[in-house]
Nucleic acid binder design. Structure first.
Length: 248
DNA sequence: AAAAGCCCCTGGATGC
DNA sequence: TGCATCCAGGGGCTTT
């Protein structure tokens, strides 16, 4: 592979691109919202931030304004486009490398798959005094629950986003655990949520937002009880909820 | 140790 | 049409 870099992303690559020339990509994994490319020596961590997208360009046109990174492989050129530049491409010698640890070291459980242990989730909640919405977003208990799906999972489990995590009863914690799996599983099926112009590598939009119960629906009637959906700010992010269906 | 705020950056929507 | 303001799928860092 060969690496070509345009305007800086969130962090420096932390390696000389020339030193990566000829390196082999042996496999691809995911951890939280990080994409991990395993190389024959070291690995690359890729994050799309809020506005990033990756796509293969077969005969690469001239890099556009927001094309920041090309990974040139024998299978084609993988190009990262990211208008907002919150994304990242970082090289690390290995997973124990400090640069990798800094980004991956405190990540919580993967919500899909067998590793999402209910007991660990419950005990994690019991240790946090912060509002449950922010505990979900923080990513050190469970990963992958972003701003849209945090609101949605809390609606599905009938929990008010402002409720302190440790105050949730065991049954409510269990419902939330299940709701996270349900919401994320469903979102993956639907190809994610397209707000503004998100699309996948094939240019296809997601459709989850069409069935969103609360996210982006401020002032509109709750789909269950018709109470107007409310929006509040938590940690500089919008939170949507139904005050009737979601109890403190 | 945990929680709360701040900030990175660009572009689109809205309001005057 | 122009300009100011606000808001946005994330998350690391610094300060309380």
């Amino acid at each position: 592979m060969d690496v070509r870099i345009g305007k800086a992303l969130r962090w420096p690559l932390s390696a000389d691109p020339a030193s990566l020339l000829g390196r082999l990509v042996l496999g691809v994994r995911r951890r939280g919202k990080y994409l991990l490319l395993d190389l024959d020596r070291g690995l690359m961590l890729v994050h799309l931030g809020m506005s990033g997208s990756l796509s293969f360009v077969l005969r690469p046109p001239q890099a556009g304004k927001h094309d920041h990174f090309d990974l040139v492989t024998t299978q084609g050129v993988l190009r990262l486009n990211d208008p907002r530049r919150f994304g990242a491409v970082v090289y690390a010698q290995g997973e124990q490398d400090s640069v990798a640890q800094k980004l991956l070291g405190k990540l919580g459980m993967e919500p899909l798959g067998a590793g999402f242990d209910l007991q660990l989730f419950q005990s994690g909640l019991a240790r946090r005094r912060a509002p449950i919405k922010q505990v979900l977003l923080a990513g050190d208990l469970v990963v992958g629950v972003g701003n849209i799906y945090a609101s949605e999972a809390l609606f599905l489990s009938g929990i008010r986003p402002t409720t302190a995590a440790f105050k949730l009863s065991r049954p409510r914690g269990r419902h939330l655990h299940q709701a996270i799996r349900d919401v994320l599983g469903r979102a993956v099926e639907k190809g994610g949520s397209t707000l503004r112009n998100f699309s996948n590598a094939n240019g296809e939009e997601g459709h989850f937002q069409l069935e969103s119960m609360v996210y982006g629906r401020a002032g509109q009637p709750c789909k269950v009880c018709e109470t107007p959906i409310r929006v509040i700010r938590q940690g500089q992010r919008s939170t949507f909820f139904c005050a009737q269906c979601q109890k403190p």
